[in-house]
Nucleic acid binder design. Structure first.
Lengths: 146, 146
DNA sequence: CATTTTTATATCGCGCACAATTAAATCGTA
DNA sequence: TACGATTTAATTGTGCGCGATATAAAAATG
């Protein structure tokens, strides 16, 4: 009486994994226009929301480790979008701040979420509802991991 | 009258992206036990469902390119789970077949989807319903990309 | 005040993930 | 048969993403 083996399409994890790739492909031309990768875009969104954050603060919001963020932030710095500066009060911390160029990029960044609305054929309400469901799933998966 | 800038949590793409990472973290200990990474697990699921596929056939099912699959399949071959053999009828094609070890691994692989049920606190019906919604989202995003 | 522990970021190694390119085999059509 | 177009997989280069570890600063401890 072993349970029947799950097929690919029965895996919720796979539909999530595949949807993440689909978003990446959809965003690719728009993000190329901004000169950003997708994780870089998320980092900029976090900084537009609150400037002058520490590396670990960004990591907590994006659920990413410093081993991922440090090189990513160096690339954003090389692109002239952010500055990386040690906090004088606590030299362990590195403060990430937007440059004028980085701040200005926000004006063009609305094209990213906009293209989801255009191409998915789903309404804002539908997208918001699904967003809440997936957020609840993530929280449920994270709870056990803690 | 520019639209207000979207915050991180307003992004459906981000909840999907973060949920994919959460699955990875949840699966990590179980997959370590099987000696597989997550994309390797998906590849094995595809082969358990249908043995003897070409590289491109696996790629179509997982939405992955040969540049991703070729090294991944070589690692599965090195682990003794699959064989890679050129089709004699058409030497361009490489047929991927399960070894006895690879087939046998399926018996222990049920632990992977099982741990979602255990830790998410969601019912099978809820997980299936969300799966269908996310699948529909992926299809909607893919349609425009074609 | 010296030692230990904790905290914050950086480094390294491995495995994806994809775009662009290459190389080889097959097919289509003259 | 010839030969350009197509198909199939492999290769290369860039950028994540994380675990393990290193380094340095700050805080806690005695």
């Amino acid at each position: 009486m072993t349970p029947p083996p799950l097929k690919l399409d029965d895996h919720l994890c796979f539909s999530i994994y595949a949807a993440a790739h689909a978003f990446n492909r959809l965003y690719k031309p728009v993000l190329d226009d901004l000169g950003l990768t997708y994780p870089q875009y998320l980092t900029m969104v976090a900084l537009w929301q609150e400037d002058g954050q520490r590396v670990s603060s960004i990591g907590e919001k994006l659920y990413l480790e410093s081993s991922t963020l440090t090189p990513l932030l160096k690339r954003l710095e090389a692109a002239g979008l952010v500055t990386r500066e040690r906090d004088r009060a606590d030299e362990r911390q590195v403060l990430i701040r937007l440059t004028d160029t980085g701040r200005a990029l926000q004006d063009r960044a609305g094209a990213v979420p906009a293209c989801v609305l255009n191409t998915s054929g789903m309404s804002i309400a539908e997208l918001q509802a699904l967003n809440r469901e997936v957020q609840a799933l993530r929280r449920a998966l994270d709870r056990s991991a803690a």
